[in-house]
């Protein structure tokens, strides 16, 4: 074994030593400075009674009535989406058909469709996602006879949650597009 090879091996050993101490230190820092919130996320999820969630969510799309307002009497103002999705569910399409019918009858009304995302995504991506969701709703309204110049689209990304909870049910309520009268 020549000298340079020995040197190399020793160097590796030294480096390895550093890494081992490094890992040890890192672990201890983490446990002391971080709370254990992340591990609890899964537990709360499990702790929620399954029957209750089933009644309020289908897959991870919200199907309950909490936070749902009215665009007009008997016309719900919002539709909900699955995580990272912009596809309209059967229930969403029914809601939007009701909105379209009412808007056709009230032709002087203009609306803003506000698109929202939950807090589990990066801010900029969520702005784009909110815009996509609002446009999915707008396109459907247009299909059912509402002209595009009556519908403005505004994405809030994750900036305006309706439910401040940090759990799957709260997030499902926040993944929404809301049709709001503009005049």
């Amino acid at each position: 074994m020549n000298l340079s090879k020995i040197f190399k091996n020793v160097f590796l050993v030294v480096i390895f030593g550093l890494i081992v101490t490094a890992c040890a230190t890192k672990k201890s820092v983490k446990t002391t400075t971080e709370s254990t919130t992340t591990t609890k996320a899964a537990e709360t999820q499990k702790a929620d009674p399954i029957e209750k969630l089933d009644a309020l969510m289908q897959g991870d799309v919200y199907i309950g009535s909490d936070t749902v307002g009215e665009l007009a009497s008997g016309v719900p103002d919002r539709v909900f989406f699955a995580t990272n999705e912009t596809i309209l569910t059967t229930a969403s399409r029914e809601t939007l058909r009701k909105q379209a019918a009412w808007l056709r009858q009230n032709s002087d009304v203009t609306v803003v469709v506000e698109g929202h995302a939950d807090e589990r995504g990066t801010r900029e991506y969520n702005l784009a996602l909110g815009e996509r969701r609002a446009n999915a709703a707008k396109d459907y309204l247009m299909t059912y006879g509402v002209s595009s110049d009556r519908i403005k689209v505004l994405s809030y990304g994750k900036e305006r949650p309706v439910d401040s909870g940090s759990n799957p049910l709260s997030w499902s309520k926040n993944r929404r597009s809301v049709t709001v009268k503009a005049n």
């Binding site: 971080e34 919130t37 992340t38 807090e119 439910d163 940090s166």
Partner: peptide, 29 residues
């Protein structure tokens, strides 16, 4: 690693990263 964090930005010498972190809310939100 955390419940929520994003938006890294580099120190001008490229040695440090600054970012923001949000906490999980409790049962009452």
């Amino acid at each position: 690693e955390n419940f929520y964090q994003e938006a890294p930005s580099w120190s001008p010498n490229g040695r440090i990263i600054i970012f923001y972190r949000e906490t999980k809310t409790d049962d009452k939100g």
